[in-house]
Computed example of a mutant assay.
Amino acid sequence: MTNITLALGDITEQRVDAIVNAANSSLLGGGGVDGAIHRRGGPDILDECRDLRASRYGKGLPAGRAVATTAGRLPARWVIHTVGPVFSTTEDRSATLASCYSESLRIADELGARTVALPAVSTGVYRWPLDSAARIALTAVRDMGTSVTEARFVLFDQRAYDAFETALNELPPA
């Protein structure tokens, strides 16, 4: 059973087996969590992402999918990149957001990662409302059959932490 924990802070400082990156489909870095991971992790991450673009993901990584690279200079072994959906008021993309988490944990299992740090995918520039994103993320992680022993949601600010804490406390039993 996976222990779900919450932390307020910088995901790039987490000492875990794998850090999940809220990447954009290009895999070539960007803003927010993605930019922070690439800056702190160094050029090795970008080099592997370029190799992935040149081979399997020529058109980019689709939303809801995940792929792993080295963690470079981060205090983790791997970075698992996942692309969240852009929030829409006219189309329900909840399943795609949930897939970001289940696919990330599936990749973590393939790698043998037991501790994973996760961000609040799609809640930045992709504008997913925090309360909804927290419920979807926590439910997806709780319901995923995985060998990961700790799924640590690392929230950048108090507002995000509070939303995830509320959602975790309101999560119905599996």
Rank of each mutant, 00 (worst) to 15 (best):
T2S: 04
N3Q: 09
N3H: 03
T5C: 02
L8Y: 08
D10L: 06
D10K: 05
D10F: 05
E13M: 07
E13C: 05
D17C: 14
I19Y: 13
N21G: 12
N24M: 11
N24E: 09
L28E: 11
G29L: 07
G29T: 04
G29K: 05
G31L: 04
G35H: 12
G35N: 03
H38V: 04
R40H: 03
R40F: 08
G42C: 01
G42T: 00
L46N: 00
D47N: 02
C49W: 08
L52P: 06
S55K: 08
R56F: 06
R56H: 05
Y57D: 07
G58S: 01
P62H: 04
A66N: 15
A71P: 13
G72K: 07
G72S: 03
G72N: 08
W78K: 11
H81P: 12
T82A: 14
V83L: 10
G84Y: 07
P85M: 07
T89N: 11
T90M: 06
D92A: 08
R93E: 06
R93I: 11
T96N: 02
T96L: 13
A98D: 01
A98S: 03
S99I: 01
S99F: 06
C100G: 02
C100S: 05
Y101K: 00
S102P: 00
S102Y: 03
E103I: 06
E103D: 03
I107Y: 13
A108H: 08
E110S: 15
R114I: 14
T115N: 07
T115R: 13
A117Y: 11
V121I: 14
S122K: 08
S122N: 06
T123P: 13
G124I: 11
V125E: 09
Y126H: 12
Y126E: 10
R127W: 07
R127F: 06
W128R: 07
D131Q: 07
T139V: 01
A140C: 01
D143Q: 00
S147C: 14
S147Y: 15
T149E: 11
E150A: 06
Y161I: 04
D162M: 13
A163P: 12
T166N: 12
T166Q: 14
A167D: 04
A167Y: 02
L168E: 02
P172R: 03
P172A: 02
A174W: 00
